[in-house]
Simulated scan of single mutants.
Amino acid sequence: MKKAPRARKAAAKTATTTGPRAGGAAFQKGLEALTQYVARTGSVTVPRGHEETVDIDGDEHAVKLGIWLTNTKTRRAKLDQTQLAALAHFGVDWATK
């Protein structure tokens, strides 16, 4: 008996977008939520459990902003310079280090 051939893994998606919307939809939703939160509160300190609702292209999206910010910090080595600059613009201290 012959073994069945192994299935190949799908190739990883790569981001090819450049410009102001670079970084993918999830990053952009989080950044929009952060923009809204900072405009309303004047602070970039977000409670971990905070959820911000944003309107993107006429659709409302609930963004778990505190978790998004924590995850983004954890993965900061994978962020490009445009993403880091966007976060630094709001005063996110770890984005400038």
Results as ranks from 00 to 15, higher is better:
R6A: 15
W68R: 02
A7N: 07
T35Y: 06
G91K: 05
H61V: 11
A22Q: 11
T70Q: 08
K73T: 04
K2Q: 10
P5S: 14
T35M: 04
D93H: 11
A11N: 14
V54G: 03
I67K: 12
W68K: 07
R8C: 01
A95R: 06
T41I: 02
G19Q: 02
L79K: 03
E60T: 14
K97W: 02
A25Q: 02
L84A: 11
D80P: 02
Y37D: 01
L34T: 06
R6N: 15
F90V: 01
L79E: 03
L65T: 09
R21F: 08
W68V: 13
A26E: 12
T18Y: 06
G19Y: 11
G49M: 13
Q36I: 12
L31P: 05
T70D: 12
R40D: 12
K29G: 00
R8K: 15
R48P: 11
D57R: 15
T41K: 10
E60R: 15
K13T: 04
D59Y: 10
H61M: 09
M1L: 14
E32W: 01
T18P: 00
T17S: 08
L84H: 03
G23R: 03
F27G: 09
V44D: 04
V46T: 08
A77H: 13
W94F: 14
G66C: 13
T35I: 00
G23F: 00
E51Q: 14
G42I: 07
H89A: 11
V38S: 02
E51G: 03
L65V: 10
W94V: 11
W68L: 07
R40F: 10
D93E: 10
K78P: 00
T70W: 12
T72Q: 01
Y37G: 06
T70P: 00
K73W: 09
L84V: 05
D57K: 14
H61N: 07
E32Y: 06
I56Q: 09
V92C: 11
N71M: 07
T96L: 06
M1Y: 07
K29H: 13
Q36H: 09
K9P: 00
K3A: 15
G19D: 01
A12W: 03
V54Y: 01
R8D: 09
K3I: 04
D59F: 09
L65S: 09
L84F: 01
A33M: 09
A85C: 02
A11H: 08
A15D: 10
A26C: 00
K73S: 04
Y37M: 01
A77K: 14
W68I: 07
A77R: 10
R40N: 08
A39H: 09
L84C: 05
